[in-house]
Amino acid sequence: MTATTTETGGSDDDVLYEVSEGIATITLNRPAQRNALTVAANRRLYELWQEIDFDGAVGAVVLTSADCGTFCAGMDLKEAARIRRERGEDILAVLRDPFYGRMREVRKPIVAAMTGHFVAGGMVLALNADLRVGLAGTRGGITEARMGRGAPWAVPLVWMLPQPVLMELILTGETMDIERLHQLGFVNYVEPTPDAVRTRARELARRICSNAPLSVAAGKASIMAAMAEGCVRGLAMAAKIHEPVYASEDAQEGPRAFAERRPPRWLGR
């Protein structure tokens, strides 16, 4: 089937989506362009985050890309230059979600299966995920300073990487080995092949889906609240977030299933 071309020059196949066994899989699908992000892809991702949040059948998300050696090269610079030339606008002005902030608000856990190098917008997607699996021998970085751009979206990395390391990434624009990012705790696992990266990511997603959904959602919300508010206020917010969890039927089902030596039957209420 021939892909449809959108108004912004992207294709409706630039971002693929499927749900199976509670896991939503999003695939960036522009291997010839190193999975660079178009205006159309940005809009599609925003729509998918909305859809995932309200789909009760989805328990976790795997974000990956078509194999080409690069998970995501960032925004499509050729499209950005064309928009400036034809419309006189910077590409950020026409993006629905310029810094992919909606991704940070998704209630379901997101596992990034990074099957190649990741820079700029690729790093945005990586840091906005909750868990990260990388490919051995690849590199990641914040290359905006080399392109005359900026990286305000990198602020959450203050809580995820040592400050001197983050300064090096932002100020030099150089990339860093995935193995070092793993040692620093930014990447959860490093696997030898793209297929192994996706397999590990799906294993993590399956484990998440097997747990009580209210507990998972509250756990993610609590960590995000603590990052935003600091320890004291974050702790208070986490206690508030967990009140419905402790009052739920699932909170009784877990101990009951353990006592009866059977798998729990989560109801999500």
Rank of each mutant, 00 (worst) to 15 (best):
R107Q: 15
K108T: 00
R146T: 11
W153E: 10
A129N: 03
G141R: 01
K108W: 02
V124R: 10
L157V: 04
L125S: 06
R149Y: 12
G150L: 03
I110C: 04
T138C: 15
V133K: 01
R132G: 10
G122T: 10
Y100E: 06
D97G: 05
A136V: 07
G141W: 00
P156W: 13
P98M: 08
L127S: 02
L127A: 07
G121N: 00
G140N: 07
A145P: 02
G122K: 06
I142M: 09
P152M: 12
I110P: 00
A120F: 09
E105V: 07
D97R: 10
R146S: 14
G137Q: 11
R102M: 06
H117I: 02
W153L: 06
P152E: 15
G141T: 06
R104S: 11
V106A: 07
L157D: 05
E105S: 08
R96K: 15
V124K: 08
P98Q: 07
G116A: 03
G140I: 04
A154Y: 09
G121H: 04
M147I: 07
F99A: 06
F118D: 01
G148S: 13
F118N: 01
G101P: 00
A136M: 12
A154V: 13
G121Q: 02
M114E: 03
V106D: 02
V111M: 04
A145H: 13
W153V: 05
T115M: 07
G121Y: 02
R104Y: 05
A136P: 00
M103K: 08
R139K: 12
A112Y: 02
M123F: 06
T115E: 05
V158N: 13
A126T: 11
K108M: 05
R96E: 14
A113G: 12
A136W: 04
L157P: 03
G148Y: 15
P98T: 08
I110A: 08
V106E: 02
T138Q: 13
P152H: 14
A113H: 09
L95Q: 09
V119K: 01
F118Y: 15
G116V: 03
I110M: 12
R107I: 08
G122P: 04
T138L: 10
A154M: 11
G141S: 08
L131Y: 13
P156L: 09
L125Y: 08
M123W: 01
A120D: 10
R146A: 11
V155W: 14
Y100P: 00
L125Q: 09
G137S: 12
R96M: 05
L127M: 15
G134D: 02
L135V: 11
V155E: 11
V106T: 11
V124D: 03
L95W: 08
A154P: 08
V155M: 11
R107L: 09
L157G: 05
M103T: 04
A154D: 14
D97C: 01
G116W: 06
Y100G: 01
L95N: 11
A112L: 08
R96P: 00
G141K: 00
R104D: 08
P109Q: 04
P156A: 14
